[in-house]
Amino acid sequence: MKKSPLEIKILSKMQPGEITLNGFLGEDSRDLYDIIAEDERTLETLGVSANELADKMQYFTDKSSDSFMDSVEIDEIFIVDTEVVRGKLPCPFSHPGIYRKTITTLTNKKYNITIRWTALNIHLIKEHHFFEGKNSAFRLDPQVLLKALFA
């Protein structure tokens, strides 16, 4: 199907070297809206909203940001560490605002799962339901994300 000018603009910003080194799409050749739609269907099956996931991610990022030199243990299950590096990133959907380069790493000891996300990931999930393309460096599979965030 022919892509709209908006989709073309968004896709160009998601390419390697535009905002991040390897871009947001990984090796995913599907249309952007198909990527989003499939993850939305997964969320529906799982019975959780993108908003709930993003809010929980933000909760862990905030909790661990206070402990800037160390990881924190939360509820005796989650080991969370947020690292801030120099710089900020814009949203590829041209949403206003810029997002500090933070990387939160969470280990769920109960399920032995470790995932990581950036401040921009939280925004992309909350506002655009975009979990990134398959094999992208910061792709977050909704199913894994749900299992990791909610013990």
Partner: peptide, 8 residues
Amino acid sequence: IRLVPEGI
């Protein structure tokens, strides 16, 4: 300069 993950 510190290497930033995914930093261009």
